[in-house]
Amino acid sequence: MRRTLVKASLHTALNVLFFTVIGTFLLAITFFQTRDRIAQSEQTEKLKLISQLIPSSSFDNDIVADAQHLAPDALLGTTTGGTAYRARLHDQPVGVVLEAVAPDGYSGRISLIIAIKADGTLGGVRVVEHKETPGLGDYIDIAKSDWIQGFDGKSLTPQHDADWQVKKDGGQFDYMAGATITPRAVVKAVHKALQYFALHRTELFMQNSPASPDKGRRGGVKESTK
């Protein structure tokens, strides 16, 4: 009785092991077959997003690889850090793409990427993830309206900080009636990111020691479906 139980268990275990080995083998093959292609797709995807903000003709470096990990910062609204992608032409800084978070959206955090040119003007802003009310606060998404393009070319206005508000509060930015919390949050976050850039300009453009752009999902430069 004991023997047969042991034997049966062993048989089952070996059986499962056998299929596991085959499965692992199959997965390994597929992984190696698709790895380069996936990395390439991810790179193109990031580049596509970045080139919406900084025209790809204006830089000549490998911008996705020329990344720097940034520590969490209150001005960027990041709590786990973020990545800065640097654009250079003939090794001269052209601009930087920063990840930032607007923590005070109507329903939570709004993740942004913000391109700032070397002279401190905005190349553009995009929302990569948000939970704003569909049809009401989601006009910050480029897929829904071109509101976000209102930031293009703007820069800090040290003499007149009040400009960095929505028109309802006396600033220069449009908003849609009925949904002012969302644009307020985005305007505030972009304003702070510009201040961050002004404070950290030199460090941001520092050349990398053999770069290790943090891999995978963390990069966050990823079009969201939400």
Partner: peptide, 9 residues
């Protein structure tokens, strides 16, 4: 749910 903009004026 469908027309939040029209429903807030």
């Amino acid at each position: 749910v469908s027309f939040p903009v029209q429903m807030t004026h």
